[in-house]
Computed example of a mutant assay.
Amino acid sequence: AIKFTSAGAVTLTVKKHATDDKIISFIVKDTGIGIPREKQPLIFEAFQQADGSTKRKYGGTGLGLSISRELAKLLKGEITLKSAVNEGSEFTLSVPVSGAAGIINSGSESRPSFAEIVQEEEVKRAENPNAQYISPSIPESVPDDRDNIAAGEKVILIVEDDINFAKSLLEFTRKRGYKGIVSVRGDYALNLAINYRPVGVLLDIQLPIKSGWEVMEELKNSPQTKHIPVHIMSSHKLKQESLLKGAVNFLDKPVAFEQIPEIFKRIEHIVNKESQKVLIIEDNSKHAKALAFFLESNNINSEIKSEVNEGVSALQQEDIDCVILDMGVPDNQAYEILEGVKKNPGLENLPVIVFTGKSLSMKE
């Protein structure tokens, strides 16, 4: 920040996170040269700077922010950026904090060196089960709409390394009235999602640098992107795994394009909804009301049913996004009814959260 600021000021602010008092934020703000919006997703990548003139004038290797982001990940945190050209930049490091007992180390304990941490991370990456889903080459980038997005326009992020398929998706995106941003590599996806705040993500599993699984994990672990619906498209037959990882839909790639209109219908349905709705099936009224209160404090509507049969009827008649089910409700047919619900057309992918004080067997 000091290097890129010839006039004005550089400030460091340390404070609690705005929405979570278990997270502390370190904010570095400057009045320097700023970073163009289209360059912001790139600067966290290794050997990248805003442009060639930056390196010639200021020097450096382009590794600083890449290393900083990896260190933030090791601390289970994240780094975010706000910047405008000729106005300055604001970098925020947000990391979780523990109580004093969790921070202090006894003298007998030795903390691992940075080199040891890096080596451990390299071993983990070598053993990464997702390695089979990483493409060996990076294709040319696809021209998109990132430089022509006006305030209020809705954006779709396309993460796809098949250039022809990506162009087809981009064309369809534009026809539906959205702006499209294309990333042909997995490691750019999170920063693009943070910067452009898309209303939906179309994600391939096999990608260069980072697999779709890794991208999905990053999107769902970031408070800024975890709410964005992700639709996975792949030639790999991994529907169950995709849904378990948080995708709202999975399409087999050979026929995926034919089903794209349905994807956009689902995206528009989510975008146009004022809030989500959860069905609570719970016979303990106190528990049910406590759950409803918690959900409503997070702008989620709820409906309470005390019996499973009533809940099934509500599912068939109303628009429900998720079910919280107490398997201890006094109904011997709870499991059979639950299985029946999952087989109903339109409900097979409905998330069901089991909320119970019972000790459930593996079969249950």
Rank of each mutant, 00 (worst) to 15 (best):
L238H: 04
V230S: 06
V230Y: 07
V255A: 09
Q259H: 05
M233F: 06
H236E: 15
V230Q: 05
L244I: 11
T225H: 02
K253G: 00
Q259R: 06
K245H: 12
P254N: 02
E258G: 01
G246N: 05
D252E: 10
Q259I: 06
V230A: 09
K239D: 14
K239I: 03
K237I: 14
H236P: 05
L238C: 03
Q259Y: 03
I232R: 07
F250Y: 15
M233K: 01
G246Q: 09
Q240T: 12
A247D: 15
S222P: 00
F250Q: 12
S222H: 04
S235Y: 06
T225W: 00
L243W: 02
P254S: 01
L244K: 14
M233R: 03
Q224W: 03
L243V: 15
D252L: 11
V248W: 04
F250V: 12
V248L: 11
K245T: 11
L238T: 10
F257H: 11
Q240P: 08
H231A: 14
L244V: 13
I232W: 04
P254E: 00
V255Y: 08
K226V: 10
H236F: 13
E241C: 01
P254C: 02
F250I: 08
Q259P: 00
H231R: 12
Q240H: 10
E241Y: 01
S242I: 00
V230C: 10
S222K: 01
I228M: 08
H227G: 07
Q240N: 13
